[in-house]
Design a protein around this nucleic acid. Structure first.
Lengths: 250, 250
DNA sequence: TGCGACCAAGTTGTCTGACAAGCTGACGAT
DNA sequence: ATCGTCAGCTTGTCAGACAACTTGGTCGCA
């Protein structure tokens, strides 16, 4: 056992984070409704057994999220129209299986649209970047290394080929949410070759379609990739997600 | 002048919000780089002329955003890989024109995918909800009322028909970001009939395709709707966004 | 010379107390 | 019934203290 496995130190959660999560939970469960006033800071401090400063920091976090609004002298209120300044995936460590299926479906929809547009808009330099990440993954496969970063890079390069910054950012955001499990697939002892190898075949198919400017095929290949990615974690996406013409490629 | 125009009272911005924005600006401008350590709380308090508690609350906000991470004893650091727990559209009041075009493109990609899936998955009760919002918009048109809420409801009902909670939430998030401009289109004096009337024709076409279970047409109608919506605010989406078969409907 | 233990200095995290600024509802006067 | 006043409560900010933690330097020992 080398020193690499000793990297992570467990830090106790900050009190303010815990209080923030507890209040979020109450809002999410409908115990605190839109427009409703939260208990006063003093009361919350007593209830949770923490100081008022900790409560205030927790509320500051909720305010940053737009979940709560405060009025000096009046109180803190659950935002009436949840002012979601932010879109978020699951909270906590991992999603429930149903949730994961929905996320994969959404990813399939978005990433296939992105692949389609990339096929129409890709420039030669875009293809260079994509090829570079493919080669990096090949290299990682050949040497038993962690290719998850190159995997991330490939997907980002695809989004960059759309020349739409928001599409790129959305994919970056989504990809980042899954990079831990992606890294696991690349680094799991004894499994290194199987899962990433299959994904790499799919990556190459996506690349080929995009390079050929075949938008419809790029869409279908990206769909197929997400479908297989879901299968690799035990999720079966339903057949109604794709059109019949895509079925020919599956 | 009635009392309606006297509704809003100007509240001075909270110090913690201002400090948060100032630090965000430094990060965004690259003055504070990923991985870089922020000045100590004491130093920031002196620099900004505020108490340490205000600084801490500002940092709590940045932590909620994932822009900053703190380690007790070490300091606060700009997140190295911006741990975007959140996906966000523009900051501030309104997007730049280029940005708006990209957003419309992304919306077109997402909303057309959602319409396609809705056409495959819609249940009778989904159609009831959609019809209800269509009728509410018709009513608003006939009476010169604000139908933007019904407009929002229509799009949400479409996403609900996918029976994918994340797709629904993403569309909700995106729709909410544009509801102010949507409301403007419905309430602008003298323009009430023109813009919402055109949009309503498009809504009905989307509904018809979804009700008929025609996924391909639903996709194209949704694309066309977003294209026209962009045109209505002076943005021309490029022709490469849609496939040639969609061109037949444009 | 290299490694481990120890410690000082600095930093974040939390608590406490005080006061300013603001809100809300009740009460009294007109 | 309406308006003005005020008490009580609440958020916002400041200040100080101490706990918990990190980091880098120094010293001792093999």
């Amino acid at each position: 056992m080398g020193t690499k496995e000793l990297k992570k130190v467990v830090r106790r959660p900050r009190l303010s984070e815990a209080i923030c999560l507890a209040l979020e939970g109450r809002i999410a469960r409908g115990e605190l409704k839109p427009g409703e006033r939260l208990p006063a800071e003093k009361v919350l401090g007593e209830a949770f057994g923490v100081s008022r400063a900790v409560v205030r920091e927790a509320v500051a976090r909720l305010k940053a999220d737009g979940r709560v609004e405060t009025r000096q002298g009046a109180g803190a209120f659950v935002s009436r129209v949840p002012k979601c300044l932010n879109f978020r995936f699951w909270q906590g460590d991992s999603p429930a299986p149903d949730e994961l299926r929905e996320i994969f479906e959404l990813r399939a929809m978005i990433e296939s649209s992105i692949a389609e547009l990339a096929a129409r808009r890709r420039l030669p330099e875009d293809l260079v970047v994509m090829r570079r990440s493919l080669l990096a993954m090949d290299d990682a496969l050949a040497n038993g290394n962690d290719g998850s970063e190159a995997d991330d890079d490939f997907h980002l390069a695809t989004a960059a080929a759309t020349h739409n910054g928001y599409a790129h950012r959305l994919l970056e955001f989504m990809g980042r949410r899954f990079s831990d499990s992606r890294r696991l697939a690349w680094t799991l002892p004894g499994r290194t070759g199987d899962l990433p190898q299959a994904a790499q075949v799919e990556h190459r198919a996506i690349y080929a379609a995009i390079a050929a400017g075949d938008a419809e095929r790029a869409r279908c290949e990206a769909h197929a990739h997400l479908r297989c990615a879901a299968l690799r974690v035990g999720i079966v996406l339903s057949d109604d997600l794709i059109s019949e013409s895509a079925g020919d490629f599956a």
